[in-house]
């Protein structure tokens, strides 16, 4: 592993996103302004608004992980959002309610603005705006925000790294064949 400096490691979320946003204009163009729609799958829990939120958050959290080619990127993002739906739907009802409260806080425009610092819709938020929000919550002095960040992190990471599409990059061979 290449050594990191502190600044690099803590800030890579933000810096990485900015760089990618610059380098990947084409992707942002194809994505910006187009609401997240996925008609190929029946969502159990996530509403249309939830999907837009998760797509924005997953795009920032998985920066440097998702493929850069636009069609593959889009397909991977769809997989991640579906994965979050599966993950949330497996939780007991009381925990699903808590997740819904978090999503609600982040989707209601006034609270999205004041609590997350994101004043545009999630679909229109730039990658660096989303990454700034994530960093702000990750290190917030308010433990409720830190726990909100951790919940989003856990959902997105579980959704992505549970599937074989993520394994090639990290060198995981998958489960052994048992005979």
């Amino acid at each position: 592993m290449r050594p990191f400096t502190r600044g690099e490691f803590i800030q890579t979320g933000l810096a990485g996103i900015t760089l990618l946003a610059l380098a990947g204009c084409m992707r942002s163009n194809t994505y910006a302004g187009s609401p997240f729609d996925d008609n190929g799958y029946r969502y159990r829990v996530l509403s249309g608004g939830d999907r837009e939120l998760i797509a924005a958050v997953a795009g920032a959290m998985l920066a440097g992980v998702l493929p850069s080619e636009p069609i593959a990127y889009r397909a991977a993002l769809v997989q991640a959002v579906r994965g979050v739906d599966v993950a949330v739907s497996g939780l007991p009802p009381g925990v699903v309610d808590e997740v819904r409260q978090l999503f609600g806080l982040l989707e209601f425009p006034p609270t999205r603005g004041f609590a997350a610092g994101v004043w545009s819709s999630w679909t229109n938020a730039s990658g660096s705006q989303v990454a700034s929000f994530l960093l702000r919550w990750r290190f917030s002095g308010v433990t409720l925000f830190r726990s909100g960040y951790q919940a989003l992190h856990q959902l997105v990471m579980a959704a992505w790294y549970g599937g074989p599409a993520s394994w090639t990059r990290i060198g995981y061979p998958g489960p052994p064949i048992v005979s």
């Binding site: 592993m1 290449r2 990191f4 690099e8 490691f9 803590i10 890579t12 979320g13 933000l14 810096a15 990485g16 996103i17 990618l20 920032a60 959290m61 998985l62 920066a63 440097g64 992980v65 990454a131 994530l134 990750r138 992190h153 790294y161 990059r169 990290i170 060198g171 995981y172």
Partner: peptide
Amino acid sequence: GFGVGGAQLIGEL
């Protein structure tokens, strides 16, 4: 962590 920093860590699985 997340983003590029997090990706590099997990990339070294």
